[in-house]
Amino acid sequence: MAATVLQSGVLAATKEHTATVIFMHGLGDKGHLWQVFGYNQERIIGDIRGLLPHVKFIFPHAPIQPVTLQGGMSMPSWFDIFSSDKINGKEDREGMLRAVNHINELITEEMETSKLSSDRIVVAGFSQGAAMALLTGLTSERKLAGMVALSGYLPLRADIFAMATDTNKNTPIFMAHGDSDVVVNYQTGKGSAELLKQHHYQVDFNTYEELGHSAFPEELQDLAKFFWKVLPEQA
């Protein structure tokens, strides 16, 4: 195993393991203590896990590093954040691509150790982690089962489509956003989905009224349906 493979929290499948979701947390969080829904990790996945007993969930931990937008404070972060402007603000391209490399190493490890093909793996994330899921999926040379971006946005939009491969051009993308989100503006998330659609990606964008930078049961139900669609149980 490569020395740079990310450390992760894991929830094993409850029956024969035939699929995996790799979920990237948001800024300042950790994989094994992911609480964006206001519950502990087991409760979050427990709400949808009953329908997906064959799915293993991996929650990688982002490295701890200084974040410019937070006054240089060190915290778990997939990349540095220079500006709250997700459209025109300066972005940490180098840090993002380094994180993508780490996530790809984790995918490789999962394929080798679990004997899965890449099309039985979904990359997913919340907020900053959602940006990583999209960047990883769009630039991947491996065919994935799906991508999930909760309360997130499309990073490096000036050149991401030049970086993208055709491998996941038709891979389903589930995006969800609360219309009261003030951390990642709702219009930023919606605009990201519209831009992906303009480039002929298969995006299902879901809006949740009066929801801030978080999630709630209806969203979990929609997410569970997506997982079941792209990662059906195999005989």
Rank of each mutant, 00 (worst) to 15 (best):
A3T: 13
S8E: 12
G9D: 06
L11E: 10
A13N: 12
T14A: 14
E16F: 11
E16R: 13
T20V: 11
I22Q: 00
M24A: 05
K30D: 08
K30S: 11
H32S: 14
W34M: 13
Q35E: 15
Q35G: 12
I44E: 09
I44N: 08
I45C: 06
I48M: 13
I48V: 14
R49F: 10
G50K: 09
L51T: 14
L51Q: 14
H54A: 07
K56G: 09
F57R: 02
I58T: 05
I58P: 00
A62E: 00
A62D: 02
P63Q: 05
P63W: 07
V67S: 01
V67M: 01
T68F: 04
T68I: 06
Q70H: 08
G71W: 04
M73P: 05
M75E: 03
P76V: 03
S77V: 00
S77A: 15
F79A: 01
F79I: 01
I81A: 02
N88Q: 14
R93P: 03
R93K: 13
R93F: 14
E94C: 08
E94Q: 14
E94M: 12
G95L: 03
G95P: 03
M96N: 02
M96Q: 09
R98Y: 11
N101L: 15
H102T: 15
H102P: 03
I103F: 01
I103V: 15
L106K: 01
L106T: 01
I107H: 02
E109C: 12
E110W: 03
M111I: 15
T113S: 15
K115F: 13
K115W: 10
S117K: 12
S118Q: 04
S118Y: 06
D119Q: 09
R120P: 04
V123I: 10
F126D: 00
Q128P: 01
A130K: 00
M132I: 07
L134S: 07
T136E: 04
T136L: 05
T139W: 00
K143P: 05
K143N: 10
K143G: 09
G146T: 02
M147Y: 05
V148D: 03
A149T: 11
A149D: 05
S151T: 08
L156H: 01
R157L: 09
A158P: 05
D166F: 12
F174D: 02
M175R: 04
H177M: 06
H177Y: 07
D179H: 01
D179Y: 04
S180V: 05
S180K: 11
D181S: 06
V182P: 09
V183A: 11
G191C: 11
E194L: 13
E194K: 10
L195G: 08
Q198F: 09
H200T: 12
Y201M: 08
V203C: 08
N206V: 13
T207R: 07
Y208L: 03
Y208M: 03
E209W: 04
E209P: 10
E210N: 14
L211P: 05
H213F: 06
S214F: 06
P217Q: 05
E218Q: 13
L220R: 10
Q221H: 15
K225D: 15
F226D: 03
F227S: 04
W228I: 15
K229T: 12
P232M: 07
E233F: 09
